[in-house]
């Protein structure tokens, strides 16, 4: 079972992605576009030159962190739909600190990053606390927390950070993650140091999950809270902790945008979707850090490559959204694929 299990853990996401791509091709064909030119434009848009690669990685960066946020909570059997709100408060806090604090970079930048993580952590703590102490389902609370984050952030941008403007001023250089070196290497894309931080955090999260007593407890609570209590673990504490860490990761994803890509924050008419996409990234990555990195890269490239499709092949961007939606659909219904795989293997074994 174990080897089979591992194999299908890798096979299923790959098959899901392939099915999504095939379904996308069919839709392009039906709507009168050439799927080959369409997909080659997509590929060019994502990896065609150094600039495209730089932008793809930039897009991937927050997905890694928001994917990790959702994946980490999943390990404790918690569904953190609130990653979106955690991203937003993280973004806001990072920019706020970036604008208002005066300090040398060595203090300012870490402070801004830490602030974002703490803001996200608080946004995770509240649903965690309600779940652990009162049994309120985290999905409901995190959805509410998303709206609170969105509207209060807009309010703060308009009335606290600016005087009725829609965009804040830029953060100080001492809080910026942008990198002359990375940027020039990729033909002046917006690639920034955040990717290194994201990868580093992924390693740390892997370590926490696989190698620490904290991870041992969180997974145990996720699998079987009764046995965890029997074994002397504090179930409430672990639920709260899992949500706090998950929230901090969401906050960090926001910092990537606030301190790296944009250097400011604007009033949002709707959600950024970085957090929501994190759910799909986590699912596609089977809730493991390495899987999340790969899934985030896929999402980043699809989104980035999509820009090239209208100009390069005349395919509307909406179609790319449809393809991504299809991939998520196939991942979510992965149990159908698993079933088919089992049948196939069962027959082969005869």
């Amino acid at each position: 079972m174990t080897t089979n299990h591992k194999r299908s853990a890798i096979l299923i996401p790959i098959i899901s992605v392939l099915l999504g791509i095939i379904a996308g091709a069919i839709i392009m064909l039906v709507s009168g576009y050439n799927p080959i030119t369409g997909y080659s434009a997509l590929f060019r848009g994502a990896f065609g030159d150094a600039y495209a690669i730089g932008e793809t990685i930039r897009r991937t960066t927050p997905y890694i962190l928001s994917g990790l946020a959702v994946a980490f909570a999943f390990r404790a059997s918690l569904f953190n739909i609130g990653a979106e709100g955690q991203v937003i408060v993280g973004w806001l806090t990072a920019v706020w600190i970036g604008i208002s604090v005066d300090a040398p970079m060595i203090i300012h930048l870490p402070l801004a990053i830490l602030g974002a993580a703490i803001a996200g952590a608080i946004w995770g703590f509240i649903p965690g606390l309600l779940k652990a102490k009162l049994g309120v389902h985290e999905v409901i609370v995190t959805i509410m927390m998303n709206y609170i984050a969105l509207f209060s952030t807009n309010e703060i941008i308009r009335n606290v950070l600016t005087d009725h403007k829609t965009t804040t001023e830029s953060i100080k250089d001492s809080a910026s993650m942008s990198s002359e070196w990375l940027s020039s290497m990729t033909y002046y894309s917006r690639l920034h140091y955040g990717i290194l931080l994201a990868l580093f955090v992924a390693v740390i999260i892997w370590f926490i999950i696989e190698r620490t007593t904290l991870g041992f407890e969180i997974k145990a609570v996720g699998f079987n809270p009764h046995a965890s209590r029997y074994a002397g673990m504090n179930v409430s504490k672990n639920i709260i902790l899992a949500m706090v860490i998950s929230g901090a990761l969401g906050g960090l994803a926001g910092a990537m945008e606030g301190l790296g890509t944009y250097g400011n924050i604007s009033v949002m008419s709707g959600f950024s979707n970085i957090g929501f996409d994190g759910i799909a990234v986590a699912l596609l990555g089977a809730n493991t850090p390495l899987g999340v990195i790969l899934a985030a890269l896929l999402f980043g490239s699809l989104k980035e490559g999509a820009n090239e499709m209208p100009t390069g092949a005349g395919v509307p961007t909406e179609l790319v959204d449809i393809i991504i939606a299809l991939i998520i659909f196939f991942v979510a219904s992965s149990y159908i694929i698993r079933w088919a795989l089992l049948r196939y293997q069962g027959r082969k074994a005869k």
Binding site: K219, A220, F223, N224, H226, A227, S228, Y230
Partner: peptide
């Protein structure tokens, strides 16, 4: 424990 699946083991461990 009396109920080994509920309390005694984390079956997925």
């Amino acid at each position: 424990p009396q109920d080994r699946h509920k309390f005694g083991l984390v079956l997925d461990y």
